[in-house]
């Protein structure tokens, strides 16, 4: 006897409901692609971070997630998970070159900013470097990315302090 699968095979992607397959071994990345959601795919094994999305609000490489694990959950790609202040700071600091790694990095660092700077916690360059572990960038050497995130964090903290006053 096996347990019945009573769950509807659906999730939301950037707020839009989508139907997931009932069977099969594809990853969430594969299914997103089938639905026209194009994300970079580097290693397909969780090492490079390029395919990172938010699953129920938490960053994860979509290539590591069996599609069925997304049932009943919300998926946010860079299209809705990006923090505007971070994107602007990355452009300003030259933190995007070929751009292959950028969607994943933006998802993770936007999450970091939302869960720290936006609630008044300071962010150091080390915090950013730590968050970038598991994101490979072959072009920038990371320095500009770290500077951009720290700069965005200070703008976000200043804005949130001003709003609290």
């Amino acid at each position: 006897m096996t347990a019945p699968d009573v769950r509807a095979a659906t999730c939301t992607v950037d707020g839009r409901p989508i139907t997931l397959p009932q069977t099969g071994t594809e990853s969430l990345w594969d299914v997103l692609e089938d639905h026209g959601v194009a994300l970079p795919l580097g290693c397909a094994s969780g090492h490079c971070g390029s395919c990172t999305v938010l699953l129920d609000g938490v960053p994860v490489p979509s290539c590591l997630v069996p599609h069925a694990e997304a049932r009943g959950r919300s998926v946010a790609t860079v299209a809705t998970a990006a923090d505007d202040a971070l994107v602007a700071a990355m452009a300003e600091h030259g933190a995007v070159q070929c751009g292959f790694c950028s969607p994943g990095i933006v998802v993770t660092l936007s999450w970091l900013l939302r869960t720290t700077a936006a609630v008044g916690q300071p962010i150091t360059a080390d915090d950013v470097r730590n968050a970038l572990t598991g994101h490979l960038c072959r072009c920038t050497g990371y320095t500009a990315v770290v500077q951009a995130a720290v700069s965005a964090a200070s703008k976000i903290s200043a804005a949130s302090k001003a709003a609290d006053r």
């Binding site: 071994t25 990853s27 094994s45 969780g46 997630v65």
Partner: peptide
Amino acid sequence: VVGGATSVQPWLTSTGAQPSVLVHLR
């Protein structure tokens, strides 16, 4: 059996294995 899937999914992707059933513990 599927726990966090951090080894299972790369294995499925890289080998094309098709087990009869994945038992998700979530």
